[in-house]
Simulated assay, not measured.
Amino acid sequence: MVRRVMVDEEGVEMRVRINDMKEMVKEAVGNSGSSQESLEGLVKFILSR
C-alpha cells in the first residue's frame, strides 16, 4: 500500500485528489466558508432563545 501511494501512478492520482480536498476544506472552514457560516447561524439561533 505504501508503495502504491509513494511510487505508483495511482499514488500520484491520490495525492492530486487529496490536495483538491484540502483546498475545499480550507475554503469551507475559512472566513465566509460554509462551515463558518453554519456555525455562526447556530450561535445566533442559540443566543436568540
Rank of each mutant, 00 (worst) to 15 (best):
E13M: 04
G11N: 02
M21S: 06
G11H: 02
E27V: 02
V25R: 02
I46T: 11
F45C: 14
K26Y: 08
L39H: 08
G11C: 00
D20I: 00
N19M: 12
V25W: 03
S34V: 09
N19T: 10
R49K: 14
G11E: 03
R17C: 05
V16L: 13
S35V: 13
E13R: 07
R4E: 09
E23L: 06
K22Y: 10
M24S: 04
E37H: 11
E27Q: 07
S32V: 11
V7E: 08
R15E: 09
M1P: 03
A28D: 02
S38R: 10
D20Y: 01
F45A: 15
I46H: 12
E40D: 14
N19K: 14
E40F: 10
M1G: 09
E37W: 10
I46A: 12
E9S: 09
E10Q: 02
G30I: 03
R3G: 06
S32W: 13
D8Y: 07
M24Q: 03
E9V: 06
M1A: 10
N19G: 11
R4P: 01
M6F: 07
R17I: 01
S38C: 11
M24N: 03
N31E: 09
K26T: 01
M14S: 03
V2S: 06
R3L: 08
V29D: 02
S34R: 08
V5P: 00
R3Y: 08
I46Q: 12
E40W: 10
V16Y: 09
R15L: 11
N31T: 09
V29S: 04
Q36M: 13
E37R: 15
G41T: 13
A28Q: 00
L47T: 13
R3I: 08
M24K: 06
S38K: 13
N19F: 09
R49I: 12
S35L: 11
V12F: 04
R15P: 01
S35E: 07
V29Y: 03
L39S: 11
R17D: 03
G30F: 02
I46S: 11
I46N: 10
E13Y: 04
K22V: 05
E10A: 01
M6N: 07
M24Y: 01
S32K: 13
S35R: 07
M6W: 08
V2Q: 10
G30V: 04
G33P: 00
R4S: 07
V5N: 04
K26F: 05
K26L: 09
S48I: 13
R49N: 12
I46Y: 15
I18L: 12
L42M: 14
V2I: 14
E13L: 06
V2G: 04
L42Y: 14
M21A: 04
V2T: 12
V5F: 05
I18H: 08
E40V: 14
G41Q: 12
V29N: 04
S32F: 14
M14A: 05
E37A: 11
M21R: 04
G41K: 13
I46M: 12
E10N: 03
N19S: 12
N31A: 10
M1H: 09
